[in-house]
């Protein structure tokens, strides 16, 4: 075959491809939400999501997975190693660790997520508007957030425990009171730079409602670091809850949480001889926190509009 005929054939093929490209035939019809499509393409985020959902569903469906009650004391089987009867073994007063991990997860996840979302909701709502509005309102809000951030958390916890009593709800309230400031600052600093962008100026020229500009047009562009912050602070709050429980100020000891379970295994003897009391719980907590972080990264990428997908 001569080169010229080969070239002609290639050219024809090329023209055809170009024609198809220009008419949009080559592109697969994109269906559904762009953000969702991008999220589904991110393998790590999917793995994170699966682990996250598995643990979450297991905690929610705890009564179906175990017949033990997390609070039932059984003095006949103290400190039993894992067996088919007790999957994760039993603790010092014969409670089933597997049941405690599942039921405890409910409380820990609720506290972690509740606090993180509460912080984010308050912080983002205030921070976004405060930065957009500027002026005296902004300076006032910054001072207020500083006051809240400078309250020592432990003292506040002790105060509230003394006044309201010990409960999971109070823990969440305390976490939100002490934590919204950092989210506020993050949202504020994001919006401060975005509000000088020319598209925001242009919306102002059109005279749109400031709330529409602020929450509909600016917020989506400020969201990605905030989402990552929410996921990270969920993990942080789960750990903080454990620390408070350890001090006897958190969730009451009789209610199982991941923190409470781990704290039962704080002495050296348990650590060395009864690994089932802390290792499975620790792994579950780590897996859960890690899966949240994977998901957070995935969501951050999908909310970043400059990344194609």
């Amino acid at each position: 075959m001569s080169t010229s005929s080969k070239n002609a054939r290639l050219n024809r093929k090329f023209d055809q491809i170009r024609r198809m490209e220009e008419s949009g035939e080559l592109k697969k019809k994109k269906s559904g939400n762009r953000a969702l499509r991008k999220l589904l393409n991110n393998r790590l985020a999917i793995i994170g999501g699966v682990i996250f959902l598995l643990i979450l569903l297991a905690c929610i469906a705890a009564p179906l997975l175990t017949s033990y009650s997390p609070k039932a004391v059984d003095m006949k089987s103290i400190l039993k190693a894992p067996s088919s009867a007790h999957l994760f073994g039993t603790d010092k007063i014969g409670r089933d660790v597997f049941a405690r991990v599942l039921y405890g997860g409910r409380m820990s996840i609720a506290i972690g997520f509740g606090s993180a979302l509460g912080c984010a909701a308050i912080g983002v709502l205030l921070g976004c508007y405060s930065a957009y509005r500027g002026g005296w309102f902004d300076s006032l809000m910054v001072r207020i957030s500083e006051v809240f951030m400078s309250i020592p958390q432990l003292i506040l916890v002790m105060m509230l425990v003394a006044i309201l009593g010990q409960s999971a709800k109070n823990i969440v309230i305390i976490f939100v009171i002490c934590g919204w400031g950092s989210c506020f600052r993050m949202a504020r600093s994001q919006v401060l730079s975005i509000r000088e962008e020319e598209y925001v100026q242009s919306l102002k020229v059109f005279g749109l409602n400031p709330f529409v500009i602020c929450y509909k047009h600016i917020l989506p562009n400020a969201l990605s670091p905030i989402i990552v912050n929410v996921t990270l602070s969920t993990a942080m709050f789960i750990l903080e809850e454990a620390a408070l429980s350890f001090l006897g100020l958190g969730v009451p000891m009789e209610i199982p949480t991941w923190g409470n379970i781990l704290n039962a295994a704080q002495d050296m003897y348990t650590l060395q001889n009864n690994w089932w009391m802390w290792l499975p719980t620790g792994i579950v907590v780590s897996l859960f926190v890690m899966s949240i972080n994977f998901m957070g990264d995935g969501i951050r990428d999908t909310t970043d509009p400059t990344q194609q997908g």
């Binding site: 020319e198 598209y199 562009n221 509009p305």
Partner: peptide, 11 residues
Amino acid sequence: FQDPQSSLNPS
């Protein structure tokens, strides 16, 4: 506006 980079909302 001047800057074509920032004059449209990226999201």
